[in-house]
């Protein structure tokens, strides 16, 4: 790790010179933290105030905090169902995306597949495509397979559209694995599948976790597919349900949309706490290697 080394370059020049940049940087970062944390805190605060209190002063601490907005918006929008659905889409959709991407990533990183540049380039177009472009034809495809307004249908769409980024991440990760390891396996007569399953896959777990988490977040945030391919409210994910908060009826009451926002973020906060170390630590580094 280079942390200490980086800092040492500054340390070398005596104590004042080393403390000054650190102070300046810390100050700067405090400002940044305020920029990022401020809006979130404000929303949490707004969500437990009455509207009159909000209008009296948006920054004032709540005098008589209430959870009524949470209750109202929870039942008003049916957050129980929405959250359950989003969890289903995000867990299953990302699992599908990663599963689909594993072997291609293996092939593109460890083998000389003829035409691999073309295959890789083709998969990348999936990343460039604006979703609103593909709605009509994709709707056709889903209708053909009788997958409209089904959870399975949306899971498949999310899985397929998550795949290109997963191939990119996993391929990068797998290239960092030293070739000697699998060479030994091939010498012992292992098949491609055995090398993939017993050697590469276990070594790729950190990369898979990173990819899975990023994909989970992406599906959690998505709303266009859900909006167009689903009809029944019992299938709606949180984002589609939340669109109702973007009507001016809700926007005139402040605390309800704020409470809705907080609720919609809760599961991801939990996931975030559980996996943040994985994605922000060294595990990502393999994934971004060329």
């Amino acid at each position: 790790m280079s942390d200490a080394t980086l800092n040492a370059s500054a340390m070398r020049r005596g104590s004042f010179a080393s403390v000054l940049p650190k102070l300046a940087a810390t100050l700067l970062m405090l400002v940044l933290a305020a920029v990022w944390l401020g809006p979130l805190l404000l929303i949490v605060m707004t969500s437990i105030k009455s509207n009159a209190e909000f209008l009296a002063g948006p920054f004032a601490l709540p005098r008589s905090p209430t959870i009524q907005p949470y209750i109202d918006v929870w039942f008003g929008l049916g957050f129980g169902t929405l959250l359950r659905n989003s969890l289903i889409y995000a867990t299953a959709g990302s699992a599908l995306a990663v599963t689909l991407a594993l072997v291609p990533a293996f092939a593109l990183s460890r083998m000389n597949v003829p035409g691999r540049k073309w295959i890789f380039g083709l998969l990348l177009t999936g990343l460039m495509l604006p979703q609103q472009t593909v709605l009509i034809p994709l709707y056709d495809t889903l209708r053909t397979f009788h997958l409209l307004d089904t959870k399975i249908g949306l899971i498949i769409v999310h899985g397929v559209y998550g795949m290109p980024l997963q191939v990119l991440i996993l391929r990068g990760f797998m290239t960092t694995i030293p070739p000697e390891i699998e060479k030994a396996a091939y010498v012992e007569g292992a098949t491609d599948f055995q090398v993939f399953w017993k050697v590469i896959l276990p070594l790729s777990v950190p990369g898979i976790l990173v990819g899975y988490t990023l994909n989970f977040i992406a599906i959690w945030k998505e709303f266009v597919f859900g909006l167009v391919f689903l009809n029944s409210e019992e299938n709606f994910p949180v984002t589609v349900g939340m669109l109702k908060l973007n009507s001016d009826r809700y926007l005139a009451v402040f605390n309800l949309p704020a409470a809705g926002l907080v609720i919609s973020q809760l599961p991801i906060v939990i996931l975030f706490i559980l996996t943040y170390r994985q994605i922000s630590g060294g595990n990502l580094s393999g994934a971004v290697k060329g």
Partner: peptide, 16 residues
Amino acid sequence: SAALGATAVAAASGVK
């Protein structure tokens, strides 16, 4: 993830 996937499939098929 197998457990999660299974839950998802079960929940999805129950709808229809």
